[in-house]
């Protein structure tokens, strides 16, 4: 179901990107994900025509790439090809193997992705936002990867901590989790959280006690929902890292989360990172969505945005 949801989101954004492409702009690197409808940023992007506007909007910029084909039949054509795709083309070869720099680039990108999965969120960062930590039943990273079911339930100590330290029945509950990328939290939380808090304030909404879940899966929000009974809950969680970026975060939102929720009852903004949906924009947008959930008493496919 998570995959299906991602897929739907991908489709929408792909259509946006297609429109961007038709306006003579190259597609950004990586699969862009956001939810329906587009963020104000995306809508603005559709209207944007000048490169300066794109820069101001912090839209994705392709890292500079050069082709290594020594004597191409058509040099300008080669640049044209490179501009049309983020795929690793024009890389040339030695015999039938890649050049050293191309090989090392791939290994660097993979290393970043692996580090994101096995890394830990910075304690200083969590302290900065006065977040305490609870753990799921995941036990260790290996088990976390093999047993998604155990990442959906808090352990006994976690349950006790929540009951002791969290405000019950808050209007909005904010939860942060490492998920599959600790570095996504490190890279984006400082931008997402303040803009989310500001946005909630501007809608006059009140927040419960935010905290961090170690070893969390998306559906951990159901268990937390049972324990704290918030009106709405947002879970900021690290996504499965790709080679284009290992720092991508998703925001899963839900009206009255509880056990047995299905994926279609959740609303998601994914691909939150500097080259995707900008974290500051995302924070503001999450606030808007949460306020609409409270207005309409619904989330997921039932929510009209």
């Amino acid at each position: 179901m998570e995959q299906q949801l991602d897929f739907l989101v991908d489709k929408v954004v792909a259509e946006l990107q297609k429109k961007l492409g038709e306006m003579g702009q190259t597609a950004p690197a990586g699969t862009q994900k956001t939810e329906v409808p587009a963020t104000p940023q995306m809508e603005a992007a559709q209207k944007a025509t000048s490169p300066t506007v794109r820069e101001q909007l912090a839209l994705p910029v392709e890292p500079e790439r050069t082709a290594h084909v020594p004597n191409p039949k058509w040099q300008e054509g080669l640049n044209e090809l490179l501009d049309s795709t983020p795929a690793r083309i024009g890389v040339w070869r030695t015999g039938v193997r890649p050049l050293t720099k191309t090989m090392l680039q791939l290994r660097r990108d993979h290393a970043a992705a692996v580090d994101a999965v096995y890394g830990e969120v910075s304690q200083a960062l969590l302290d900065e936002f006065s977040m305490f930590t609870v753990e799921t039943q995941y036990d260790n990273t290996e088990n976390y990867l093999k047993r998604p079911d155990m990442g959906r339930i808090l352990n006994e100590e976690g349950v006790r901590l929540l009951q002791e330290r969290c405000q019950k029945k808050p209007q909005v509950q904010i939860v942060v989790s490492d998920g599959l990328s600790a570095s996504a939290v490190d890279a984006n939380l400082r931008d997402v959280l303040p803009s989310l808090t500001d946005s909630l304030k501007s809608y006059g909404l009140s927040c419960g006690t935010p905290f961090f879940v170690k070893g969390g899966r998306v559906a951990s929000m159901d268990h937390i929902g049972e324990l704290l009974q918030p009106e709405v809950l947002v879970l900021l969680i690290g996504e499965r890292p790709g080679l284009v970026t290992a720092h991508s975060m998703s925001a899963y939102m839900c009206y009255r989360p509880r056990k047995g929720m299905v994926e279609s009852e959740r609303t998601v903004i994914s691909n939150i990172h500097r080259q995707g949906t900008s974290p500051i924009e995302a924070g503001a947008h999450i606030g808007t969505i949460l306020s609409k959930m409270l207005e309409q008493k619904a989330s997921g496919v039932k929510l009209v945005l």
Partner: peptide, 13 residues
Amino acid sequence: NHPSDNVQGIKAA
């Protein structure tokens, strides 16, 4: 494959 099905990008790869 291309992240937004851009036909030129598909052709390039």
